[in-house]
C-alpha cells in the first residue's frame, strides 16, 4: 500500500507547489512538466530487462526516443521562454 500513500502525498505536494506558480509562467510550467514527464524513460529502461518477444526491443527503442524527445525538447523550450522573460528584468530601471 506504500505506493498509494506516496501517490496521495504527491497529490498534495503538487497541489501546493503548482498554486504558487505565477500565471505569467503558466506556459513555462507546461513545457517544464512536458520535459519532466519524460521520466517515463525509466519505465522503458526497466522493461529492457524483461523482454520476451521479438519486436519488443524496437518498441522500447522508440519509447526511449520519444521520452528523450520530451526531455530535451521540453527543457529547450522552457529555457527559450524563460530567456524571453529575463532580459527586461535587467533593462528595467
Amino acid at each position: 500500500m506504500l505506493i498509494i500513500d506516496i501517490f496521495i502525498l504527491s497529490c498534495f505536494l503538487g497541489y501546493f507547489a503548482i498554486w504558487r506558480v505565477t500565471p505569467t509562467l503558466h506556459a513555462a510550467l507546461m513545457s517544464m512538466t512536458n520535459a519532466i514527464s519524460g521520466i517515463v524513460i525509466i519505465g522503458a529502461i526497466k522493461a529492457f530487462n524483461e523482454i520476451t518477444a521479438y519486436p519488443e526491443p524496437y518498441l522500447l527503442y522508440f519509447a526511449i526516443f520519444l521520452a528523450s524527445f520530451n526531455i530535451f525538447g521540453g527543457f529547450y523550450i522552457t529555457t527559450r521562454m524563460l530567456n524571453m522573460f529575463k532580459p527586461k528584468e535587467k533593462k528595467h530601471d
Binding site: L13, I18, T33
Partner: peptide, 16 residues
C-alpha cells in the same frame, strides 16, 4: 520516482 513525478505533472495539468 515515476509515481511522484507523474503525479506532479498530472496535478499541474489538472490545476491549470
Amino acid at each position: 520516482l515515476m509515481i511522484v513525478v507523474g503525479t506532479l505533472v498530472g496535478s499541474s495539468g489538472s490545476i491549470l
